[in-house]
């Protein structure tokens, strides 16, 4: 359900990680998150590795978030999803190459949190982005460490507390997206184009710059990343969450 491809042009080599579960709008399972992380680790470990990585999703929607139907069968799945999400976003952020996310259509909840691991986010005007999870008793706090420096305190507070979704234009305005295109079909090609350009830069300088930016904005702060994850995990066994999720499954 996650594929790693290589996109090669004379200008540079790019790794492409694609979520491929489009019949479920790329809803995330713990294995898919683990696979994204494994792809990132694999790219990192390659000798003469690609110069940039694109994270995308097959179909109309980049990612609709966690596959909550799994949690119905096993109450331990939600904590596993949150933990894997945190690990995967960190792995993307800590890669020594730039990461470009292609978020056409939508990046919802866990899907939006994945974007926070990317350095660039391309989306389209009619896409829907955000964290509509407090309404089902889930806390998006896990996303805060990477989201807050990207969009600033005020926007972060609004996005994590208000379950409403925003469109691509608003995502661009607040800095959740770095580019917003008119057509969803143009998003992945543009991400590949940008990643190819980034792959043509001087590699050592780029890696040093990214590492330094990570240090400056708290992306390397393990204690804070763990704290954010724990804030989301702390309520996963509570009555409120169980009751609210049960009402989701009842429809």
């Amino acid at each position: 359900m996650v594929r790693l491809e290589h996109h090669e042009t004379p200008d540079g080599r790019v790794a492409v990680v694609l979520l491929d579960r489009h019949e479920k709008r790329n809803a995330l399972t713990p294995d898919m998150l683990e696979n994204i992380r494994a792809c990132a680790d694999h790219v990192h470990a390659e000798e003469d590795h690609p110069g940039a990585l694109v994270l995308g999703g097959v179909g109309d929607v980049f990612c609709a978030g966690f596959d909550l139907s799994l949690c119905q069968e096993d109450p331990l799945i939600l904590p596993a999803l949150l933990t894997r999400l945190s690990e995967t976003a960190r792995a993307l952020r800590h890669l020594p190459i730039p990461v470009v996310a292609a978020a056409q259509g939508g990046a919802i909840a866990g899907g939006c949190a994945l974007l926070c691991g990317a350095d660039f986010v391309i989306t389209n005007r009619d896409a829907r982005l955000g964290y509509p999870v407090v309404r089902i008793g889930v806390s998006p706090a896990v996303s805060s460490t990477l989201l807050q420096p990207a969009i600033g305190h005020a926007h972060c507070r609004e996005r994590l507390l208000d379950p409403a979704l925003i469109d691509g234009e608003e995502a661009l305005r607040i800095g959740l997206a770095s580019e917003c295109l008119a057509k969803p079909d143009a998003v992945l090609p543009r991400a590949l184009e940008l990643a190819t350009d980034l792959a043509s830069k001087q590699r050592h300088a780029l890696a040093a710059t990214k590492r330094w930016l990570n240090e400056l904005d708290g992306s390397e702060n393990a204690a804070q990343l763990d704290g954010a994850l724990n804030a989301s995990l702390a309520i996963t066994s509570g009555d409120e969450q169980r009751t609210m999720l049960e009402s989701v499954w009842r429809g």
Binding site: D119, F120, P149, I151, G152, G175, S178, L198, T209, L213
Partner: peptide, 17 residues
């Protein structure tokens, strides 16, 4: 630069060159 544009934009500006 981070103080001027925020960390997200600064990241994009510096990595894109």
């Amino acid at each position: 630069l981070i103080l001027r544009t925020g960390a997200g934009r600064a990241r994009q500006i510096l990595l894109q060159g």
